Simulated assay, not measured.
Amino acid sequence: MSWHILGPGSLGCLWAARLSQAHIPASLILRNQHRLAALQRQGNQISYLAYGQSSPLDIAINAQLASHPQPIERLIVACKAYDAVAAVESVKTRLSSNSGVFLLQNGMGSQQAIAQLLPGIRVIAASSTEGAFLTQPFHCTHAGQGTTLLGDLVHTQPEPTCLRDWQQAQISYQWTDTILAALWRKLAINCLINPLTVLYQCKNGQLTQQTERLTALAHELAQLLSAAGYPCTAEDVFAQCLQVIQNTAQNTSSMLQDVLNQRRTEISYITGFALAQSQQLGTSHRALLDLHSQLQARLQQLGLPLD
């Protein structure tokens, strides 16, 4: 069985390196000929620094463009949320009713759009705590061991047998029949941590100084999750957020990494999605609106897209 991975970012390269290292067929799908040539100049290898190791390994990796004719059996979508739908659209003709699509996007909104784009194809959403970053293109550092929660986005089915490949590659995962609940909970945590690290220009751990604001946001997000069908309390949301902050105290959030590297953020799929859902469901959202507006103002100051 072969895996294809859309997106050569940190998670895409992490999955490609680990599968290839375990001798499981895996191919990166790259955006254009320029990216393909860049990988070829590196000898068609990913430089992979495994977690806890001091020296990187050069991992041979196959790569191709979206226009390649090879059918896709298993597709991992590892690009940013704002690129995900277009990326899947570019390989849609290579998928069949027997294909499986695995989504690793932050936030919410892109997953549902892809499920609508691929009726009749099994779409599996993920919530991952794996930590990785690129020091340069195709140079991947596994910065933090985590696990990936997986489940069907539509029509729950038994765990797919292809995930035995992940076990062989020592990729930690758990299967769940309630992935949407997990995605909503992670959305709440993302709303609490990511935007504030951008506004205060700080690592995650420094957010313990913002308890008043975190409390107000946790109150509104708990209302939102409960109205969406996933009951929780503000105390639950705050406690989970504080735990993540403490566990990742030295980490730079993904949104702050994007800002520091002058890249587009996933604001529309995090605070933007939460705010729109809160307005639609009629829950209180003053603190969330203030947060989203301040984040947009900061992005505008930096000359970055507001969506």
Rank of each mutant, 00 (worst) to 15 (best):
A50F: 01
A50L: 03
Y51H: 15
Y51D: 03
Q53M: 12
Q53P: 08
S54W: 05
S55Y: 13
S55V: 14
P56M: 04
P56Y: 06
A60R: 12
I61A: 12
I61M: 10
I61D: 01
L65Y: 08
H68M: 07
P71F: 09
P71Y: 10
R74C: 05
L75E: 00
I76M: 12
V77T: 00
V77A: 01
A78H: 02
V85C: 01
E89K: 14
L95D: 02
S96I: 07
G100F: 06
F102G: 01
L103C: 06
L103P: 02
L103D: 02
Q105D: 05
Q105L: 08
G109C: 03
A113W: 10
A113D: 15
Q116T: 12
L117D: 03
G120K: 04
V123N: 02
V123E: 02
A125F: 03
A125Q: 07
A125S: 12
S128A: 11
T129Y: 07
E130Q: 12
A132M: 05
Q136E: 15
P137F: 08
P137S: 12
C140P: 03
T141E: 10
H142V: 04
A143D: 11
Q145E: 09
T148E: 01
T148S: 09
L149M: 12
L149R: 08
D152Q: 07
V154C: 10
E159K: 11
T161F: 13
T161Y: 13
R164E: 15
W166F: 14
S172G: 08
Y173L: 07
Q174R: 15
D177E: 15
D177M: 09
D177C: 09
T178I: 13
